[in-house]
Design a protein around this nucleic acid. Structure first.
Lengths: 187, 187
DNA sequence: AATAAAATTTAACATAAGATAAATAATCAG
DNA sequence: CTGATTATTTATCTTATGTTAAATTTTATT
């Protein structure tokens, strides 16, 4: 739990009581490389914290698989478009490496919001921050060339190339594998 | 205030006390067509509710003006990447028509969060919903053609063409005016 | 280690969208 | 109402990325 608590502290430090309450709704999950943590069609009812490993969210656009995002150690991952709407998700979460996660039940978490305003505040801040990241991602996709986006990704996550197959990176960047290979070939 | 209260009710109905507390931190603002409501370089300290009119958020990418989003009546608009980080915004909010707005001071609002958890919950839900919209927008930009995005916009906001100049729509769609004109010409 | 499977690169050609410039249409200010 | 400004369209040419297919390299399995 230490990693998770440090993560929380970056947003909104919690009282001991609140930490204990969260600890009670957490479960450890281990997942083998390439396995889905959550599958397409199910409603998102769990928020995961990554202790070890790499995750991606992916979905299909007309039988082509698209990677929406990656998440590495000490980050939270959830399919928010399902978590916040209660609708089934068209997306899946897959672990790209053998991974260790902490699973937080969203129903129980939302219950805790009623007894611990500080927990509601914590997650408000976590998701506000994720929201800002997504707003910035729109800008990145819309107005930077594929090459610029590739370089920006390398700068942001220098180890992504070591840990994530290029085919996933290509669709994350919004281009084909062939295009990515071309961009990489230039230098 | 009635429109604003109805808007709130869609997310999290408030007690009378909470409504009164919010009412106290609201101001009416009228803005003429084409005027900036908030300008580039200032930190976002106000959340606006649009009673009448159309707003857009825009910014510059290498001296080319880009429209990030539009907002119509009965919606909230704010430059969240500044609101949630406290950093100065590279973006401006402009009113495309003569408009009436309600301005909510973000500092005072965040203070109210401490006395009214229900207000914090309300805005948590409002921004969670906006976050989901942004996640969906990433998908739309990344994996639909410009023509698909144009048609989707028309379906979503059928009156956008009557109320918003095409040059703004073009950059919102991530294409040039010339490209948009070409797409429109096809049919 | 050998083979099979998967991932990545390379090549050739096609296409959507960009850039620039000019023409036309719509809007605005006096 | 008229000229001036701004917005939109049309035309031409260029370019980045897509598509398909084949070649090569890497990884996984027996």
């Amino acid at each position: 739990m230490n990693e998770l608590i440090s993560y929380f502290n970056k947003y909104n430090p919690l009282s001991e009581n609140a930490i204990n309450a969260i600890a009670e709704i957490c479960k450890s999950v281990n997942i083998k490389k390439n396995q889905d943590l959550q599958s397409i069609g199910h409603t998102c009812r769990t928020i995961y914290f990554i202790k070890k490993g790499v995750a991606r969210i992916y979905y299909y656009k007309e039988d082509i698989e698209i990677t929406e995002c990656f998440a590495f150690e000490n980050a939270i991952i959830a399919r928010v478009e399902s978590l916040f709407t209660g609708k089934p998700s068209r997306k899946a979460i897959q672990m790209i490496e053998d991974s260790e996660l902490i699973a937080i039940s969203s129903a129980k978490l939302f219950d805790l919001y009623n007894t611990f305003p500080e927990i509601e505040r914590l997650f408000r801040k976590i998701f506000e921050s994720a929201y800002v990241d997504t707003v910035n991602r729109v800008e990145s996709i819309q107005f930077h060339s594929a090459e610029e986006r590739y370089n920006a990704l390398l700068k942001e996550s220098p180890n992504v190339l070591q840990r994530v197959p290029l085919k996933y990176i290509a669709s994350y960047l919004g281009i084909t594998q062939v295009s990515l290979s071309r961009i990489r070939g230039i230098r």
